[in-house]
């Protein structure tokens, strides 16, 4: 503690080191800006769960896009002679009741699930984000109107509505009807989340600043509000992609999803129900593939959520 030279008064000075203070004040101009997304990436890249789920998602997407890379067996070529045959060379998972190669069917089944999952999520995010953003941003009566419409669709259980509508589409059931049905009844959740996120962002100072600078309302919404409200939407969309894959499988299981002409995990699982007693592997592989796919999307959503949440990141 340095003392002053004045004899009459004793002064105590705080222990301030001028040099260090200067260092603290210095801004490293070369460092990248610490945005939310940059921070999130920094915490994501060190988490193994992120890389595991990213790898699984990539794998499933590649399998869905080019199944030929993984098997040369035709999934719809079935020989009753090999019904329930155990695994053999070239047929690692064995055969199902109809004598179809389980491995090939599991590989080719990825396409239906992944297509339905991705397309439905796109439909749901577009519908939900537009409705939610308009309701949250413009507010007042417009919000009341859109919120009530959201409530209406939210109140009808997804699978129930899908069953009713798919029953009507009896003659032309395909990937697109499933996507439309799940999309039309699946968007309210995203709409609610978007509305909440937009409402919490729209009163921020930088939005007021943008308005003061003469940015129009619609441009403000698109360029300034939405990018800052995107985080919860992305997290929810990632998780619900998995949920939609399960919903499609449920519909196919009930026999009103994809027709049997399309190789899909849901339909194969439904067929495996009767075979469970004699050969559990018939159930195990399509169900396992489905579960692993859904799991990877849920884990990815979890990891991204943790990374985007500053509260969870500190710990």
């Amino acid at each position: 503690m340095p003392e002053t030279s004045r004899p009459t008064q004793m002064h105590f000075f705080a222990d301030l080191d001028v040099e260090i203070l200067e260092q603290v004040d210095t801004v490293d101009e070369t460092a990248p800006p610490a945005s939310l997304w940059h921070d999130a990436w920094q915490s994501l890249r060190v988490r193994p769960i992120f890389w595991v789920s990213a790898f699984l998602i990539l794998l499933v997407v590649v399998v869905a896009a080019v199944p030929r890379l993984f098997t040369s067996t035709d999934p719809s070529y079935c020989d009753l002679m090999s019904s329930y045959n155990p695994p053999g060379p070239g047929h690692p998972f064995g055969f199902d009741r109809q004598g179809c190669d389980i491995y090939a069917r599991t590989i080719y089944g990825a396409r239906a699930s992944v297509t339905v999952g991705i397309l439905t999520t796109i439909v749901v995010v577009v519908l939900g984000a537009v409705v939610g953003a308009l309701a949250g941003f413009y507010g007042k009566w417009f919000d009341s109107l859109l919120s009530r419409i959201t409530d209406i669709f939210f109140a009808i259980p997804l699978v129930l509505a899908a069953i009713v509508v798919m029953q009507v589409f009896a003659t032309h059931r395909n990937v697109f009807t499933v996507v439309v049905v799940l999309g039309v009844f699946g968007w309210p959740q995203i709409a609610r989340i978007t509305r909440g996120a937009v409402m919490s962002v729209k009163n921020a100072d930088f939005i007021t600043a943008a308005t003061a600078l003469g940015v129009s309302r619609s441009r403000n919404l698109i360029r300034h509000v939405m990018p800052n409200a995107a985080a919860p939407i992305i997290v929810t969309a990632t998780v619900s992609l998995g949920i939609f894959i399960v919903a499609e499988a449920t519909l196919s299981f009930l026999g009103i999803g994809l027709p049997t002409t399309i190789v899909s995990w849901g339909a194969d699982i439904a067929k495996a129900q009767t075979a469970l007693r004699s050969q559990p592997s018939v159930l195990f592989y399509p169900a396992g593939a489905l579960a692993l796919t859904v799991l990877s999307f849920i884990m990815m959503g979890d990891a991204v959520r943790d990374a985007l949440d500053p509260k969870a990141r500190k710990r």
């Binding site: 169900a287 489905l290 692993l292």
Partner: peptide
């Protein structure tokens, strides 16, 4: 919990039915 969420409820259903019930 992750596995339970990821495995469709009908798979859990008839697996349990077979194992526990039958």
């Amino acid at each position: 919990s992750l596995v339970v969420i990821a495995v469709p409820v009908f798979v859990i259903g008839f697996t349990m039915q077979f194992l526990v019930g039958v």
